[in-house]
């Protein structure tokens, strides 16, 4: 009991003080043990947990596998691909946070999931990591189909929906890609899509965009598409 309170205090300090003291060796040992709990000794490698173990672990964290919340722990443990965890990612990730028990981790993840739609740095971190888990290790890009699945997952609660008063941007984006985009989605396109979505949320008139700006061509084309689509809408709004 005493131990737990001490741990919680550390957790608080970490949150509000911004960290800054060396992680305790004891924490690491606890995390190693926790990692072993979920590792299938027969089938998994010495430093890996595969699908079954990961699912069990996520279930213990109380994470919903149907929405963006599952991306939060994946980012924390730097999961190399969907449904897998490495010992190093697991131990380092949780050590940095200072949560070495399931209870603490569950609490932390729940807090993070709650903040996902408001803390844009957090959302960006989670979003970017999804690309890494989504692609095959040997590939540099993910299929459009896959990308759309993840966009639909991320841009929906508990993530931040990509929509403004006048437009459901996610819907428009997917519609545009399905009609015009035949290639896969590379890392640049993935990351730039997030930056673009943030800009759009701040300014749905797209006035921040110019032909000279650094957006990838696909986004330039999308802007043209969106402007054309919304052309009528914008005009009728003015006459109102």
């Amino acid at each position: 009991m005493l131990l737990l309170r001490w741990g919680l205090m550390r957790l608080e300090i970490h949150f509000y003080g911004g960290g800054g003291f060396a992680p305790d060796a004891g924490v690491k040992i606890s995390l190693d043990k926790l990692f072993e709990n979920y590792r299938d000794i027969k089938n998994d490698g010495p430093d890996n947990i595969s699908v079954d173990g990961t699912m069990a672990y996520f279930a213990a964290l109380g994470v919903d596998l149907q929405d963006a919340s599952m991306c939060v722990p994946m980012e924390i443990v730097q999961a190399p691909t969907v449904g897998e965890m490495s010992r190093k990612g697991f131990v380092d990730g949780w050590t940095a946070i200072g949560a070495e028990t399931i209870a603490k981790q569950k609490l932390y993840v729940a807090q993070q999931v709650k903040k996902l739609s408001t803390d844009m740095d957090l959302f960006k971190r989670v979003y970017r990591h999804v690309f890494i888990t989504a692609k095959e290790p040997s590939q540099k890009a993910i299929s459009l189909e896959n990308a759309i699945t993840y966009w639909e997952l991320l841009f929906a609660p508990p993530g931040k929906p990509w929509a403004t008063g006048s437009t459901n941007w996610l819907e428009l984006w997917v519609e545009f890609l399905n009609a015009n985009w035949t290639k896969s989605v590379n890392k640049d396109m993935w990351n730039q899509t997030f930056d673009f979505s943030q800009k759009v949320m701040q300014d749905e008139t797209l006035s921040f965009w110019s032909e000279d700006s650094a957006w990838p061509s696909v986004i330039d084309d999308f802007v043209a598409y969106a402007k054309q689509k919304r052309g009528d809408v914008a005009e009728s709004m003015e006459t109102d």
């Binding site: 540099k140 890009a141 590379n186 640049d188 990351n191 730039q192 032909e211 000279d212 650094a214 957006w215 990838p216 061509s217 696909v218 330039d220």
Partner: peptide
């Protein structure tokens, strides 16, 4: 044309000659 140059930048980003 600027859009053509941008397409080339896209390609070079993908080929990892460039980074953002």
């Amino acid at each position: 044309k600027i859009p053509d140059i941008k397409k080339c930048i896209d390609i070079l980003l993908e080929k990892e000659y460039l980074e953002r």
